[in-house]
C-alpha cells in the first residue's frame, strides 16, 4: 500500500477581509480556512485511495497558525496529516512552498500520486503543483476534472477551453485538479471526532534537510490592494417582455459575456 498525498494551503478566509478607506486590505481579523479548491484535492485523494486501496494523507506547509488545519483536513477522510511548520511560510511564494512540500514528500516517501488544486483561493498563482513535480522529477498534469488509475498510470481528463483532453501519466505523478472534479461533503460528527484521534506529523525544516534561506521567496509582494468593480448602471427598456429580453441578450453579447 502506498500513499496518495493531497497538498493544501491554510489561507485567510476572504469573508473576514476588511477594506480600509485607502483600499488597503486588513487581514488582522481574518480567520483561517483550508483553501476552497484544496478541499476538492483532499476529497479526490480520499476517493482515489478508496478505489486503489492506497492510503490518503494530507500535507501542508504553513506557519504555526496552520496547526488548526490538521483536524479539519483529517475530518475530510485522510488517514494522517503532515505539516511543515515554519514562519517562513507567511512570506512564501510558489518557489518556496514547492521546495518545502517536495522535501516533505520525499521524507514521507512511498507515494503514488500527489494531488494539488490548480491554485490557492488567495493568490491563485498556479505554481505549486508544477513546481513540486519538477523538483521531484515526476510528471505533472493540470486542469484535471477526472482521474482514473490503470496499472502504472493515471488517466486524467483535462478541461480545456473548448473540450476535454485525456492524458495518461506514469506514476508517481502530480495532478492539479479543478473544483469540478467533485463536491467535497461537509464532514459529519463522527468524522470530526475521528479526526481528533488520527495521527499527525509535524516537520521542522531542518528535519527535511533544509535551512531557512532555502525557503526564501523568489518574488516579493509589494502591495495588496482592494479593487473596486464599478457598476455599469445600464438601464434597458422595451415595451414587451420579449423586447426587454432581446435588449438584455443584446447587451450581454456586446459585453462579451455570452
Amino acid at each position: 500500500m502506498s500513499r496518495i498525498i493531497a497538498c493544501y494551503k491554510w489561507v485567510a478566509d476572504e469573508a473576514d477581509l476588511k477594506i480600509n478607506p485607502d483600499m488597503s486590505v486588513d487581514l488582522s481579523k481574518a480567520k483561517g480556512k483550508i483553501s476552497d479548491y484544496d478541499k476538492n484535492a483532499i476529497e479526490a485523494a480520499v476517493q482515489m485511495a478508496k478505489i486503489t486501496g492506497d492510503e490518503a494523507v494530507t500535507l501542508t506547509y504553513g506557519s504555526k497558525k496552520a496547526k488548526l488545519s490538521l483536524k479539519d483536513a483529517l475530518s475530510r477522510g485522510p488517514a494522517e496529516g503532515f505539516w511543515v511548520n515554519s514562519e517562513k511560510a507567511e512570506q512564501a511564494d510558489g518557489a518556496a512552498s514547492s521546495k518545502a512540500l517536495a522535501a516533505a514528500i520525499n521524507k514521507i516517501g512511498d507515494y503514488q500520486l500527489i494531488i494539488c488544486a490548480e491554485g490557492a483561493s488567495d493568490t491563485f498563482a498556479r505554481q505549486v503543483g508544477p513546481s513540486v513535480a519538477a523538483r521531484l522529477g515526476i510528471p505533472c498534469v493540470s486542469s484535471a476534472i477526472k482521474l482514473e488509475f490503470c496499472e502504472n498510470e493515471v488517466k486524467v481528463s483535462r478541461k480545456l477551453e473548448n473540450g476535454i483532453e485525456i492524458v495518461a501519466a506514469q506514476l508517481p505523478a502530480v495532478v492539479c485538479i479543478l473544483p469540478e472534479i467533485n463536491r467535497p461533503p461537509i464532514p459529519g460528527l463522527k468524522a470530526v471526532l475521528d479526526a481528533g484521534k488520527k495521527p499527525t506529523r509535524e516537520y521542522k525544516i531542518e528535519e527535511l534537510g533544509l535551512v531557512e534561506s532555502d525557503l526564501s521567496a523568489r518574488t516579493e509582494t509589494i502591495e495588496f490592494k482592494a479593487y473596486v468593480m464599478n457598476r455599469k448602471n445600464i438601464v434597458l427598456d422595451g415595451e414587451t417582455a420579449a423586447d426587454q429580453v432581446k435588449a438584455l441578450v443584446g447587451s450581454l453579447k456586446k459585453e462579451g459575456i455570452i
Partner: peptide, 11 residues
C-alpha cells in the same frame, strides 16, 4: 477545551 471537553463545531 482546556479542561478536556471536546467542542465540535459546524455540526
Amino acid at each position: 477545551e482546556e479542561m478536556g471537553a471536546m467542542v465540535v463545531c459546524g455540526i
